[in-house]
Simulated scan of single mutants.
Amino acid sequence: MTDTLQLGLDEAELERLGGLWTAREIAQQPAMLRETQALLMQRRAEIEAFLQPILDQAGVRIILTGAGTSAFAGECLAPALARRLGRRVEAIATTDLVCAPHLYFEADTPTLLVSFGRSGNSPESVAAIELADRLVSTLNHLVITCNADGALARYGQGPRGMNIQLPEATHDRSFAMTSSFSCMTYAALAVFSGVAALDQRIDGIARATQAVIAQYTPVMQAVAGEGYQRVVYLGSHIFKGLARESGLKLLELTNGALVTMFDSPLGFRHGPKTIVNDQTLIVVFFSNDAYTRSYDVDLLDELRRDNDAARVIAVTAQDGVGLAETDQIKVPGLADADDVELLFAYIAAPQILAFFESLRLGLKPDKPNAAGTVNRVVQGVRIHELT
């Protein structure tokens, strides 16, 4: 065993603590984002040849789907991609598609089903593809997966499909998805924004993500040591999806020991704000868009006036949030970036916080649920025949 450090801890110690894979997979994200972009550039012509005829169809519909974290990747992207493409783009979880397919699938609407999957073996992911094939007359599949041997990858190799196979290292071995989430999200962003266009942006995105990991790992470790009992993540538009993923990481890695919530800054006032007490940490993801950011600032000002939360932290790429430096996670180099490019640096700090909260509680981050009631690949799902 080497003395390599991951998130500031020696790998031998991490292995003893049961957190080696989680730490590695969080720390490797900048490198994996770069590797993902390089792979996409190699397949650029193939991707464009597959995608352009689909996007040229009148009234085409794009569904971003997956289960759990894979579904939240779609939630982080759908509004931004809809605007960029001028097409109908929706994030609908496989867990919704499977239980009520007639509510979601449209028989006569040309559809591109974009399926995200770390393992590609979740029962709902496979069932969603099979139901789509059955119910939609004009259908194509784009599969973005981390596992070349998964069921989803095989579907993506069909005559009306394409499989985007991510680097093997993104097939996270930890219970919680970290680099798999960031790289699947990035791959979809690049595919639909133009792989060559993102080649001009990947360096800044990866550098910013690396900077957050390097600078704020000790900060997040200290925050975990403060012992909050409730953690709320808030974000507008695409950052609401990121807030949802952030809350799930904390819930997963603490085995449900901490109460977590996500919402938008505007939505938080409509009842959910009652969760706030003197044991609550609130984290707000700030938009770069000046109009949207004004609502983020308004809520932050309100929380300070209320003085009910134990602590409020802003994750921001721009100055001027009005908090002490110690209560800001500042993302460098992306002050002028589109919000969607902030997703990757923004998610790093919540992942690190969840990791250290897991250790604080005496759990093993690689497998926090020792009882096996939840699993890395979901078990116990029975898919019912649609009649």
Rank of each mutant, 00 (worst) to 15 (best):
T65Q: 03
S70T: 04
P79F: 08
V89K: 12
R44H: 13
Q57H: 05
E48K: 15
D56F: 00
I63P: 02
A45S: 12
P79H: 10
L85S: 11
G59Q: 06
I62E: 02
Q42R: 15
A82H: 09
T69W: 04
G74C: 07
E48P: 09
L39D: 06
F72N: 13
L55M: 09
G86K: 10
V89S: 09
C76N: 11
Q57T: 10
Q42T: 10
C76V: 12
Q57C: 02
P53S: 06
E75F: 08
E46W: 04
A45H: 09
Q52S: 11
P53D: 07
A78Q: 02
E90L: 14
V89M: 12
D56Q: 15
R43D: 13
A45D: 14
P53L: 04
F50I: 05
V60K: 07
A73T: 13
L85Y: 04
G74V: 11
A82V: 00
E48I: 14
F72Y: 15
G66Q: 03
L77C: 10
A45W: 01
L64H: 05
A73F: 00
L40Q: 08
A45E: 14
E90G: 01
I54E: 01
M41W: 01
A80K: 01
V89F: 12
P53I: 10
F50T: 06
E90S: 04
A67W: 03
V89R: 08
A73D: 00
P53Q: 09
A45R: 09
F50M: 07
R84P: 06
R87H: 14
R84F: 11
Q57Y: 00
I47G: 03
L85W: 05
A82Y: 03
T65C: 12
I54V: 15
R43Y: 03
G86M: 10
G74S: 05
L51E: 11
P79D: 10
V60N: 04
T69C: 05
A80Y: 12
A78D: 07
V89Y: 11
R43Q: 15
V60W: 01
L51P: 07
E75V: 02
M41S: 13
E48Q: 15
V60G: 00
G86L: 11
A73S: 14
L64P: 05
G59D: 03
L85E: 01
A78P: 12
L39C: 09
P53W: 02
I54T: 09
A73E: 06
L81G: 04
S70K: 08
V89G: 11
T65G: 03
Q42K: 14
V60H: 05
L77V: 04
E75Y: 08
P53E: 06
T65P: 00
S70L: 04
E90W: 04
F72K: 05
L55R: 05
I63H: 03
L77W: 02
Q42H: 12
A82T: 08
L64W: 04
V89Q: 09
Q42I: 00
Q52N: 13
R88C: 07
R87A: 13
G86N: 08
F72C: 00
R61V: 06
A82N: 03
R87K: 15
L40G: 02
I54Y: 09
I54R: 13
A58G: 00
D56E: 15
P53G: 10
A78L: 07
I62D: 08
I63T: 05
A49R: 15
I63A: 06
R88K: 13
G59W: 05
A82C: 01
L39N: 14
